[in-house]
Nucleic acid binder design. Structure first.
Lengths: 123, 123
DNA sequence: GCCACCTGTCAAAGATTCCTGACACATATC
DNA sequence: GATATGTGTCAGGAATCTTTGACAGGTGGC
């Protein structure tokens, strides 16, 4: 079977990915998880950072689709949340950026209360 | 001749590139310049944004090596600064991130007054 | 019950980034 | 000289991210 064709990410998607990866801590988190999956608390100790902070960064990465978390139950019954890196692949070139830029939904004044019937054009 | 080998960017470099590209305005700027080179004032009018702001974004992009500006003198003697996009190419994968993360110079407590004799290890 | 470990969320403070309006300085044209 | 276009920079406020400490659960073992 042929290789997967160039995905051509949307502007919003690429934007989330780039801003998520454009942070030293999050980069290190991805690095740590690339070596081996891990659960929040352990990861926090590993890279020396508070749990609340780590939690937030992980959410940002997960929202960008770069990592995935799963709530698992260990042998001893303890509930643990493991995170794995998603095997992502993006190519950054002027053309890709140009194409993505054309599909950016103005983040200003967008889904405020996500899930509404989208009836806010009245402005 | 063989193709250029996988560059393997440093952490700081990748960090600058990603945070530079991870912004809707800068993405649009790169997009506009990809279509055709342009000078600051014209570009500002084109994408509708103040000159001071554009100037700042262009500097960020240039610092990341994504665009390059050249001060030229038009036929009529007016000094104009043209910007071109650099033909950059980056691949984003967990491995690349992991490798880059290992070479991040802790931005905290770095070149404060850049140019000193680097004698601040005493901490 | 108490301790150790896990999970999650909040609110408030700190740092950065983003953005705007005003300013200073050139050159060409009227 | 006055006007229009180009360049660049600065100060201050607005908007966002980052970060921390405290809190509220859960389960297992002593």
């Amino acid at each position: 079977m042929p290789e997967a064709p160039p995905p051509a990410p949307t502007g919003d998607e690429l934007l989330k990915v780039l801003s998520a990866l454009g942070n030293p801590h999050r980069m290190r988190i991805v690095a740590a998880l690339t070596e081996s999956r891990n659960y929040v608390s352990a990861l926090a100790r590993l890279i020396g950072m508070g749990r609340p902070l780590l939690h937030m960064h992980l959410q940002r990465l997960e929202a960008a689709g770069l990592v995935a978390g799963t709530l698992e139950v260990a042998e001893d019954g303890k509930t643990v949340k493991y995170y794995d890196v998603t095997p992502f692949f993006y190519q950054l070139t002027p053309r890709v950026i140009a194409r993505a830029a054309a599909t950016i939904t103005d983040t200003t004044e967008t889904d405020r209360t996500a899930g509404r019937s989208a009836k806010e054009e009245a402005k």
